[in-house]
Amino acid sequence: MIEWFTAVQVGVAVIAGLFCFVLGLAGRIPNDYTLGATALVELLLVVQLVISLAAPAVGNHASGSLLEFWVYLVSALLVPAAAVFWALVDRSRWSTVVLAVACFAIAVMVYRMGQIWFVQAD
């Protein structure tokens, strides 16, 4: 994991979550912007996946439990994808709020992943 990238990722997920939450409560059905914001969160997760796969090769090792880290990362990859799928099937304002829930969940999960990688002692 790279510290600044992880911080950016949490920030983007929080902003995307707030954005979807506000538009959802305002009655918007999922549109290109809210779906795009969630897709961006997913894209950053894929980048994080590549970084985390490559990091040990350049001497960047997790301080905590690798198993826990990977369970988080693999679970996280499923969440925005599932939310986008939901939003495409169910065209209602509440699906936009579901996108927000997914983005907030990713923010928390990536924060936890950062703690496992940088803070947690094994």
Binding site: S75, L78, V79, A83, W86, D90, W94, V97, V98, V101
Partner: peptide
């Protein structure tokens, strides 16, 4: 809004 409730349940179930 029940859909949101279900989504939160799904995330909690996964976590």
């Amino acid at each position: 809004v029940g859909r949101v409730l279900i989504a939160v349940y799904a995330v909690l179930a996964l976590g």
